[in-house]
């Protein structure tokens, strides 16, 4: 019983780790652009597909398998840098000037939804409908026995890795000039524009950064999951649940919520399998009922 508890918790932490990467990207994009990126799950899926493809290419080319680890990061950055700016510049940017604001929100939701549809089908065209497996990459770093159950070191490493990403992100936001500009735009785009912040550039940058984070989540998760069409749709809803629980735009809160969701999910898989797919949403429901702005979110009151 206790063994199972420990092992479920560890599983939860590892899945929470990749979930955090995706969700924090979603939160970042929302914070700066005020856009809920429905296509975010697709970035995750594309990262995962690309990782699986590169894994099989490495095998085919006879290159050392360990190259997959730096490869995963490179893939994520490449995916984000290629699709992020194109989507933001060409398909989203025009919508920032739509008035009134409530209309703008609907339009932007529809726009990212449309992008999501295009990317989902695009994946089918490019990667086909068969699942990809790159499970071989899991075992390369060996295994560790914790409380009687074997865990791959790769998955265990994901936990500190996400912690490092969180730390880097926080350092970037509070210590660098661009990071502070980003926060300024998130607080108030108009005011920061008058103070000389290049708002447009910041928007493109944060959308790209968010896309990189989502693709990184997908690439890192890819060895542990079967990569199939449809993981993107599930992921966007799941990462929205995380972000809603945390409060939109809360970075550390997103980490807490990811762990909460990850652990709760794997615990239900072990102990209450009927509820496994539903548990994240039940948690979201409960949190939103008690705190409509999320655990760490703050209400912004419009002055009238």
């Amino acid at each position: 019983m206790l063994d199972q508890l420990v092992s479920a918790t560890i599983d939860g932490l590892t899945s929470g780790a990749t979930l955090f990467l995706v969700a924090v990207g979603l939160s970042l994009i929302f914070g700066v652009l005020r856009v809920l990126n429905v296509a975010h799950g697709s970035f995750y899926a594309i990262g995962a597909f690309m990782a699986a493809v590169v894994w099989s290419l490495l095998g085919a080319a006879g290159l050392p398998s360990l190259l997959i680890y730096p490869g995963l990061v490179v893939i994520a950055i490449a995916v984000g840098i290629v699709i992020g700016p194109i989507i933001e510049r060409c398909l989203l940017h025009w919508s920032f000037s739509v008035e009134p604001q409530s209309r703008r929100e609907v339009i932007q939701l529809l726009a990212t939804y449309a992008i999501f549809l295009i990317l989902e089908d695009g994946q089918k065209l490019v990667f086909g409908t068969q699942p990809y497996y790159s499970g071989g990459a899991l075992g390369l770093l060996g295994t560790t026995r914790i409380a009687g159950i074997l865990h791959t070191n790769y998955q265990l490493l994901l936990i500190p890795l996400s912690g490092i990403v969180l730390l880097l992100l926080r350092l970037f936001l509070s210590k660098t000039r661009s990071g502070r500009c980003l926060i300024a735009v998130a607080e108030d785009a108009e005011v920061s524009a008058t103070m000389g912040v290049r708002v447009t550039r910041m928007q493109t940058f944060s959308f790209t950064l968010g896309a990189v984070l989502a693709a990184l989540g997908g690439a890192l998760a890819s060895p542990a999951i079967g990569v199939t069409i449809g993981i993107g749709a599930d992921m966007v809803v799941l990462s929205f649940a995380v972000v809603a629980i945390a409060g939109l735009g809360q970075i550390e809160g997103t980490a807490v919520a990811s762990i909460l969701i990850g652990v709760a999910h794997s615990l239900t898989v072990f102990f209450l399998p009927i509820l496994d797919t539903v548990s994240p949403y039940l948690i979201m429901l409960l949190v939103l009922l008690v705190r409509p702005m999320g655990l760490f979110g703050m209400q912004r009151q419009r002055s009238i």
């Binding site: 398909l91 919508s95 529809l110 989902e120 089908d121």
Partner: peptide
């Protein structure tokens, strides 16, 4: 037949624009 949702996405984008 293989890019039905691409078409739908494009239609949504065009209509809202």
């Amino acid at each position: 037949s293989n890019s039905w949702e691409i078409l739908l996405g494009a239609v949504i984008l065009l209509v809202i624009r």
